[in-house]
Every structure is written in structure tokens, then in C-alpha cells.
């Protein structure tokens, strides 16, 4: 039994992704002359993982159900820019950020509902539907509502929340870095996602639908309702993540998240999710997001120009999916 468990473990993508993460960290640590594991670097990397990591959770849950969502950054962008604009115009959120968050969550949920309605009730190709909603949402924020960038006038409570920290660290040269308190929210979302996917019938429904939709329906799941709820919740969470981004960046730029999905989706797939649905785990996704974040944050440490960052990201993903494709072919024989 023990041996078979070991075998089952080594057959999983998550296991290898984890190994790759460790090897890569050690490698960068060696090349950069020990800069990676300095407390300031670690804190910076963890901080820049908050938003991407949270988006990855949303993306993972949708992928497990067999969907392919391109619209979650657009939902987040519309939700936060509309929410901050409303807050600004009404003078809300100067001391308490919660109304802004609630507003963004509601807006996100409404937008997610549109996704859910089209996908669940018309059974269309999710990628094309979300490509449409993504563009549609961008059109709403930039065309219809003409939402403006909010930088210096951003409500104070958002800024305060973004700069609040759990602890501060100093590196050998006396540089200070702070661990944002919003990191806690990332950890909470990871725990919730893991709980929902593994310990609730809703989560198992997502795996079941991703594995075989017809069977899930026959087994007694209400597939339509499940999908509708899924996309609505995903929209709400996206809106929430959008607000976190506003706080961290101390600004609200409607266009800021355009194209973000193209970085998140490949990372989630790198972490073991299948675009055909039914596969994927929180652990693998967190590892994959860590790899991407570590790579892009340590470019400067190992002396590479930041303009090469995109190329490195692309290369990591290309190599990652190629290796896992080769592995799948070998397993098949």
C-alpha cells in the first residue's frame, strides 16, 4: 500500500511542479549569490503573488469544471474601477474600505451571472463566450461609462489598507520590506478553495461535471444551477480580488488588467489543471504560480534586463507544458 501511494504521488503533476519549484529556487539562489532567500526578497515575492495567486484560484475552480474563462480579469477591472469611482464620487471609504469591497463583490457577481447565464443555459463554448464578455466588459468600463484612472485621489482607506503590514524585515544592507496584511486574504482564499474543492459536494460536483457532464446530470446533480452558481461566485471573488489590487497598487486603472488572463491560465495549467476539466489541485496551482512569480521577480537578481521578463515567462510556460505533454505521451506508451 505504501509503495503504491508513493507511485501514485510521483505520477501526479503537482509532485513534479513542487520539485521544479525547489530546484529553481536553489538555482536562482546560487546564481544571484544568495539574494533570493534574503528576507526582503522573499517578502517582495510573496507580496507580488497575492493578486496573481488569488486569480489563479478563480481560474482553477473554473477549469476543474471544464470551463475556460478569459473574462475574470475584465470582471475584476470593471468591478474595481466602478466601485472606486462610486466611492470617490460619494466620498465613501475615507475611513472604512468595506463598502468599496462590498460594492465590487456585488458588481462582480452580477457580471459573473451574465457569464453563468450564457454558459449554463445555452451550453456554448466557454472560451468564446468569455472572450465576448471580456470585450463587452471592457467596452462598458471604457466606452459606456468612460471610467477614469484614479490615482492620487483614491479614497484614503484603500491606500491605508494597501500599506498596512504584518511585519517588516531588513536585509543585510539595511533595506526595509513589509509583509502586506492583505497576504492573509490570499492564504484564506487558498484554504477556502481547497476546502470547497475537496470537502464539499459542490466541489466534487465541479470535478464530476468536468469529468463527465452527462453522468453528473444522471447522478442527480443540477448541472445548470451548479455552473450558474460557479460563474456568479467566480465573478464576485474576481471583484474582490480587483479591490485588493487597487489597495496594493494605490490606484485604480480600468485598463490595468487587460491580458492578465493570458498569464494566469497557462500557469494554472502548468500546475496540473486540464483544459478538458476534472483535473487540478490547489497545491499544484500555488506551486506553479510561485514558479512564475519567482522567475519574474528574480530577473534583476540574476542580472537580466526586465524587458526580457515576458520572454522568460513565456519560455517557462512553453517548456512546462511541453514537458508535461511528453510525460503524458510516455505514460501512454
Amino acid at each position: 500500500m505504501n509503495k503504491s501511494m508513493l507511485k501514485r504521488m510521483t505520477h501526479r503533476t503537482e509532485f513534479w511542479i513542487f520539485i521544479v519549484l525547489i530546484i529553481m529556487c536553489l538555482l536562482i539562489q546560487a546564481i544571484s549569490g544568495g539574494q533570493l532567500f534574503e528576507p526582503t526578497t522573499v517578502v517582495t515575492i510573496l507580496r507580488s503573488m497575492i493578486v496573481d495567486g488569488m486569480f489563479a484560484m478563480v481560474c482553477l475552480v473554473i477549469m476543474v469544471s471544464g470551463g475556460f474563462d478569459l473574462s475574470f480579469p475584465a470582471i475584476a477591472a470593471l468591478a474595481y474601477s466602478l466601485s472606486t469611482t462610486i466611492c470617490l464620487n460619494n466620498g465613501w471609504c475615507e475611513t472604512n474600505p468595506i463598502p468599496g469591497f462590498i460594492l465590487a463583490v456585488i458588481i462582480g457577481a452580477v457580471l459573473g451571472m451574465l457569464n453563468g447565464w450564457i454558459i449554463a443555459y445555452f451550453k456554448l463554448n466557454t472560451m468564446i463566450v468569455t472572450l465576448g464578455t471580456q470585450t463587452f466588459f471592457l467596452g462598458i468600463s471604457m466606452g459606456l461609462l468612460q471610467l477614469k484612472e484614479i490615482t492620487s485621489t483614491l479614497p484614503k482607506s484603500f491606500k491605508a489598507l494597501g500599506t498596512s503590514y504584518l511585519f517588516e524585515v531588513y536585509n543585510s544592507r539595511g533595506l526595509r520590506s513589509t509583509m502586506s496584511s492583505l497576504f492573509i486574504l490570499f492564504v484564506i482564499l487558498v484554504i477556502i478553495t481547497s476546502f470547497v474543492l475537496n470537502k464539499t459536494m459542490f466541489g466534487r460536483a465541479l470535478y464530476a461535471i468536468g469529468g463527465n457532464e452527462v453522468s453528473a446530470e444522471r447522478a442527480g446533480y443540477n448541472v445548470r444551477r451548479t455552473k450558474f452558481i460557479l460563474y456568479t461566485v467566480a465573478g464576485a471573488v474576481s471583484g474582490f480580488i480587483g479591490m485588493i489590487r487597487v489597495c496594493l497598487a494605490s490606484q485604480s486603472i480600468p485598463k490595468a488588467l487587460v491580458g492578465k488572463e493570458m498569464n494566469i491560465i497557462p500557469a494554472v495549467i502548468l500546475g496540473g489543471a486540464s483544459i478538458f476539466g476534472g483535473e487540478g489541485s490547489v497545491f499544484g496551482t500555488v506551486c506553479a504560480i510561485s514558479i512564475i512569480t519567482v522567475v519574474s521577480n528574480s530577473m534583476l537578481l540574476i542580472g537580466i534586463d526586465t524587458y526580457w521578463q515576458d520572454l522568460f515567462n513565456g519560455a517557462v510556460i512553453l517548456v512546462g507544458i511541453t514537458v508535461s505533454a511528453l510525460q503524458a505521451m510516455r505514460r501512454k506508451g
Partner: peptide, 17 residues
């Protein structure tokens, strides 16, 4: 087609319904 979930374990397939 047996209405099974190929991505889940035998245990889950048995118990889920």
C-alpha cells in the same frame, strides 16, 4: 457508457450518487 467519472477514484464513483 456506464455514467462514470473517469477522473475520480473508484470510491467516489461508488458513493457520489
Amino acid at each position: 457508457d456506464l455514467s462514470i467519472f473517469p477522473n475520480l477514484t473508484v470510491m467516489e464513483n461508488l458513493a457520489i450518487n
